[in-house]
């Protein structure tokens, strides 16, 4: 087995390989898989239970693979401080399973004690930036570790959306967090709110990126307008693969995740997408070595 190379900037302890989102449908196949450098990502919210098979499976994966815990419920972009109970449950999982990576979103999902099960855009202004920075800092302090923050998708042209890439990077710089750069989300933004993906590629510093996400999206027609939804229910789109190539040519290879949360295909189909990502990363590495 070739040696696993870790990100030298230490933003991530994940290998510089492609990983997969772990779904219960694939537990058996995934655990038996022996692909070099394979790692998995889970949403810790799905494992916030007292005990039982879910945690037993998670233990089995953590014993064999590098794991990334990608939270969806802290609502860091919300007006309220991160929920203490949620933080406590997250910390329990982190302390018990020692994942290689922990990440959350530059978005909000909870307000006035209602959880919206979605990743909503925060206001794009200085007041909001300060609040998000404080929430990230509080989270990192509580967890005792640095986290990565993922850029959001946009369906609504909230005031100041053009500044979103800058404010996203600024929040990470001020809080000491790293970036989880979702390339499908920047394709979705480009389609919905006229924020070209190139703007993101220009603004996001590669050395702050600890992980990259690739996913598929779907179109929904709303009042005769087609809106691109970050649905994770389809293979990675051709556009996102192209953006990924641009990204690695500019910034080098990073741990990259193939996300799939709905319309789940066979494990082999996901592995084929992972193989494609690995091929692109290998080609780039070879080109870089030749130069």
């Amino acid at each position: 087995m070739p040696p696993v190379i870790y990100d030298m900037l230490n933003l991530s302890k994940l290998p510089l390989n492609a990983g997969l989102g772990l779904k219960p449908e694939h537990y058996d196949d995934a655990l038996a898989c022996s692909k070099d450098g394979l790692w998995f990502e889970i949403h810790p919210e799905n494992y916030m239970v007292a005990g039982g098979p879910r945690l037993a499976w998670l233990q089995a994966f953590c014993d064999k693979f590098p794991m990334s815990f990608h939270g969806v419920g802290l609502s860091l972009g919300g007006i309220d401080r991160p929920d203490k109970e949620h933080l406590k449950r997250l910390k329990y999982l982190i302390d018990r399973f020692s994942p290689a990576q922990v990440s959350e979103h530059f978005a909000w999902s909870k307000h006035d004690n209602i959880y919206f099960a979605d990743l909503l855009p925060p206001p794009i202004n200085e007041e909001s930036l300060n609040r998000i920075v404080a929430h990230i800092e509080e989270t990192q302090e509580y967890l005792g570790r640095t986290i990565l923050i993922e850029n959001p998708s946009l369906y609504l042209p909230v005031t100041g959306f053009e500044e979103l890439p800058h404010i996203y990077v600024e929040a990470a710089k001020r809080s000491g967090a790293g970036l989880l750069f979702d390339l499908n989300n920047i394709a979705v933004c480009a389609a919905n709110v006229d924020l070209p993906y190139q703007n993101w590629l220009d603004v996001v510093p590669g050395d702050m990126v600890g992980e990259v996400h690739l996913a598929g999206s779907s179109s929904r027609t709303i009042k005769q307008e087609v809106v691109l939804i970050d649905s994770h229910d389809a293979p990675v789109s051709e556009l996102v693969w192209q953006i990924f190539e641009k990204f690695i040519h500019k910034n080098g290879v990073k741990p990259v995740l193939i996300e799939r949360d709905d319309n789940i295909p066979t494990f082999d189909e996901l592995l084929a997408e992972r193989d494609h990502a690995e091929d692109l990363m290998r080609e780039f590495s070879q080109e870089a070595a030749d130069v």
């Binding site: 099960a117 609504l156 042209p157 809106v227």
Partner: peptide, 25 residues
């Protein structure tokens, strides 16, 4: 007032996500 009248219908994207996730749960 927040996002412009021409775009207000797009809240359906988020409303749809909320409904689908919670009802599926």
């Amino acid at each position: 007032d927040l996002i412009g009248d021409d775009y207000a219908h797009r809240i359906e994207a988020h409303r749809g996500n909320y409904k689908m996730s919670t009802q599926s749960a």
